[in-house]
Design a protein around this nucleic acid. Structure first.
Length: 291
DNA sequence: ACCCAGGGTGACG
DNA sequence: CGTCACCATGGG
């Protein structure tokens, strides 16, 4: 990987194991929007707006982005420092997983903000991805700070204090349904000092136990936060899609999500989170195992 | 009208 | 410890 810095953007040459659609359409993030040219996404993350575009010379454009922002913000966010070739070749050793991994090649696990992930995945429970996006967009457009890019208005994700100061009614009007109360209570706990950002140093088990004390956070949501924002790549979120596809691929059944998770950690070890993401994308894109 | 969605909670054995 | 009805909302 090789970068050239221009006035206010970066070109990354020799990019491999990175496909925009596989990164942004694999259910890990909700605020990136595909643009009409199909090779470009614009998203809000890390308190910024970013355009990311796949160019015909096989380079990747990040805009706006200076050298310091690349090093400190977007390189970690997009997990550019990780060797995905190694992970890819490790996972395809499993002949059963191989098809899904080959299909999803180009997926990356983003390193997102824990607060935004926490609220987003509380909202994800028993919900559909398009509606999750709609709720989050409504929440941000009403209560997030405005920022501009190309004369267009975008909105940051509101901070804990802001959401904690809203009423349940405000949250319900964003379409949260019964999850509104969870979002409200959890926001209060974060605002009152819950050490969300310290969990990166707690170790997987301790961090998970802490997350489970937050209203609206059960095993699946906790694993999403651990995997997508706290750096625990061994986390293995089990939703209905993962349960179905893993039972189908390995010709077995699990009584509880915990059993499926135990199976995964035994099988994939510290790469469980990557295996999960490949399987999720594969199952949804192909419809294999769909009800 | 019915079932499903990146599930969690509380009540019941 | 495991099971299960219920939860608000929109789409198929």
């Amino acid at each position: 990987m090789n970068q050239t810095f221009h006035n206010n953007h970066v070109h990354i040459q020799d990019i491999n194991y990175f496909q925009l659609r596989h990164v942004f359409e694999s259910g890990q993030t909700f605020r990136w929007q595909k643009q009409s040219n199909n090779q470009e996404y614009i998203g809000i993350a890390q308190e910024r707006v970013l355009q990311i575009k796949y160019c015909n010379d096989h380079s990747l454009l990040l805009n706006p982005c200076n050298q310091s922002e690349f090093k400190n913000i977007w390189e970690p966010y997009f997990d550019f420092r990780r060797d995905y070739s190694m992970i890819y070749h490790e996972l395809i050793k499993d002949s059963i997983l191989r098809t899904a991994v080959e299909y999803g090649c180009g997926i990356r696990l983003l390193n997102q903000d824990p607060w935004e992930s926490l609220i987003s995945f509380i909202l994800s429970s028993n919900n559909g991805i398009p509606r999750i996006k709609k709720i989050i967009q409504l929440l941000c457009s009403r209560y997030g700070k405005e920022i501009y890019f190309n004369d267009q208005k975008y909105y940051l994700f509101p901070d804990p204090q802001t959401i904690a100061s809203l009423s349940i009614k405000d949250l319900l009007e964003c379409g949260m349904g019964y999850r509104g109360i969870y979002v409200f209570e959890t926001s209060k706990m974060i605002h009152e000092g819950f050490p969300l950002y310290d969990l990166k140093a707690y170790g997987y088990q301790n961090a998970k136990q802490m997350l489970l004390t937050l209203p609206g956070v059960g095993p699946k949501v906790a694993n999403c936060i651990l995997l997508f924002s706290l750096g625990y790549k061994e986390a293995f979120p089990v939703d209905v899609w993962i349960k179905r596809i893993i039972e189908l691929l390995y010709n077995t059944t699990f009584n509880t999500p915990e059993k499926a998770q135990d199976f995964a950690i035994n099988h994939y070890g510290k790469f469980a989170g990557f295996a999960q993401q490949y399987m999720f994308f594969y199952a949804r894109e192909t419809g294999i195992g769909k009800k």
